[in-house]
């Protein structure tokens, strides 16, 4: 469980707060997505969990324990962290990049290697690619390695900072579904960042919509947010007024078609449960 308690961060006394009095609870084994536009403080919030950034005021608790009291190095070893643009070490192969984490946790080389290969398989990386260097992998493959490295941490918390932001939409879709599958298998406590609302709605059991300064505009399940946007900001952000979000049923020849605001047919309405 991750808890933010009235967290504020000022990078310098002159500038405004990057994050101002933010509170949130991420229950164990669930995925919470922070979504907001560039510069609203998402990365700052995420990095306070593993003490890459220390809050100016307030506390961050992991399973009830204030992280400020933990040794930053030990804390980071136990918390999975997937960075934007993968952040792989260029002079290490895919397998070595993942093995870094168990090695730092004190595993011997052989154990770290087998753990690394296991995780690379879990994230769907072709085993033939395990001994390639990051420069020899596509962006999507690098992100898979990044996710495997995040999963290699032994703690249950996984921080993901726009992990799929830099890959094309098709690969992004694949990676998102891989993540859902992995999460069904592992039930980690995931704090996920994105500025893509579709991604937030797909992955998050709870989504938190942020505006500048880490200000919470609304939090809730994707359905809650879409059904009842708290204010104009949220409505605009999630595109509640967008024509492709306004769906209606159109009966043709006894078949109930679902069409969007541009009359594009999206599917057929049925009474069968999935």
């Amino acid at each position: 469980m991750i808890e933010f308690e009235g967290v504020t961060k000022r990078y310098s006394s002159a500038s405004g707060a990057a994050v101002d009095d933010f509170s949130l609870v991420v229950p164990r084994g669930t995925t919470t997505v922070l979504v907001g536009s560039s510069g609203c403080g998402k990365t700052t919030l995420l990095r306070m969990v593993n003490r890459m950034v220390d809050p100016t005021r307030g506390r961050v608790l992991l399973d009830g324990e204030d992280v400020a009291g933990r040794d930053p190095v030990a804390l980071r070893r136990s918390v999975g962290y997937v960075m934007q643009n993968s952040g792989l070490l260029p002079h290490r192969t895919a397998a070595q990049n993942v093995a870094v984490v168990p090695r730092l946790a004190g595993r011997d080389r052989a154990a770290a290697r087998s753990r690394s290969l296991e995780l690379l398989e879990l994230v769907g990386l072709d085993p033939e690619l395990a001994d390639r260097y990051p420069a020899q992998l596509s962006g999507g493959q690098q992100q898979r390695v990044g996710v495997a490295r995040g999963l290699a941490a032994e703690g249950d918390v996984l921080l993901m900072d726009e992990p799929f932001g830099a890959v094309d939409p098709v690969v992004r879709g694949e990676l998102q579904h891989e993540l859902l599958r992995i999460q069904r298998e592992l039930s980690r406590t995931i704090l996920f960042i994105t500025h893509d609302v579709e991604e937030a709605f797909l992955l998050g059991e709870e989504v938190v919509i942020l505006s500048r300064g880490g200000h919470v505009e609304q939090r809730g399940t994707p359905a809650d947010v879409l059904a009842a946007p708290a204010n104009e900001f949220v409505a605009a952000f999630v595109g509640a007024h967008r024509r492709d979000r306004r769906l209606r049923v159109d009966e043709r020849d006894g078949v109930r078609l679902v069409v969007d605001g541009r009359d594009r047919p999206l599917g057929v309405l049925t009474d069968e449960a999935p």
Binding site: M52, R77, Y81, M83, G87, L89, H91, L104
Partner: peptide
């Protein structure tokens, strides 16, 4: 920066970052 940041993020100590990342690169 991202490379050094990720070395810090996985929990390398200052010395580990120096010898395993900064010096070789």
């Amino acid at each position: 920066r991202g490379t050094l940041d990720s070395a810090r993020g996985v929990g390398m100590t200052g010395w580990q970052r120096l010898w395993r990342v900064e010096v070789p690169l």
